[in-house]
């Protein structure tokens, strides 16, 4: 399964952090730092794989891809295929590109929630659930519409209104 998806910039600042198995936040920060240490020591135009056994246990690997100023990082175990994960990252970036039309780092910085929404449509519980970026865009658009129309859900159970003390 996929253990984590991380997006960080070339300064090591995290832009998106999603772990699919529970890690305390201190551990997350530590992992991000150590990954950055490994990645920034790698030359350009080398292979995109890094063994991640030391942080995530045996047979885990890390694939990264650089897009402009950003590193996209996926950590996974041996039930995934390395090249397929690279394709998946392409899908993720394509989707971001479609959602933000010509995505850049700032879009990801200022759209924390939406980037999570997009990611959740592609990966759930460490399993890939959608590989078609147009399907993802469709779902994300549906969610955005719901977000902008707060009254779209009419159903307001009594218990909740009572609880809020309105």
């Amino acid at each position: 399964m996929i253990r984590a998806v991380i997006v960080m910039n070339d300064q090591g600042k995290p832009r998106l952090v999603k772990f699919y198995e529970h890690q305390p936040v201190e551990k997350q920060q530590e992992i991000i730092r150590s990954i950055y240490g490994v990645l920034c020591s790698r030359a350009e135009n080398v292979s995109n794989f890094v063994q991640a056994d030391s942080t995530f246990g045996p047979d885990t690997r890390l694939v990264y891809k650089t897009f402009a100023t950003l590193y996209f990082i996926v950590i996974f175990d041996d039930s995934e295929n390395e090249l397929a994960i690279l394709d998946l990252m392409q899908v993720f970036v394509e989707t971001l590109d479609k959602c933000f039309s010509n995505v850049c780092e700032l879009d990801i910085v200022f759209n924390f929630n939406k980037v999570h929404t997009i990611l959740d449509e592609i990966i759930l519980g460490g399993q890939v659930i959608e590989m078609s970026s147009s399907e993802v865009v469709k779902a994300v658009d549906g969610i955005s519409w719901l977000e902008k129309n707060p009254n779209s859900i009419i159903r307001v159970p009594k218990s909740i209104s009572g609880w809020q003390g309105r």
Binding site: N113, L146, I153, R155
Partner: peptide
């Protein structure tokens, strides 16, 4: 538990991340 989708979504995101 909010009736508003965006609030619900915020709540779930916070829960699943923390």
């Amino acid at each position: 538990s909010s009736p508003s989708f965006i609030h619900k979504k915020t709540g779930y995101l916070a829960a699943s991340l923390s």
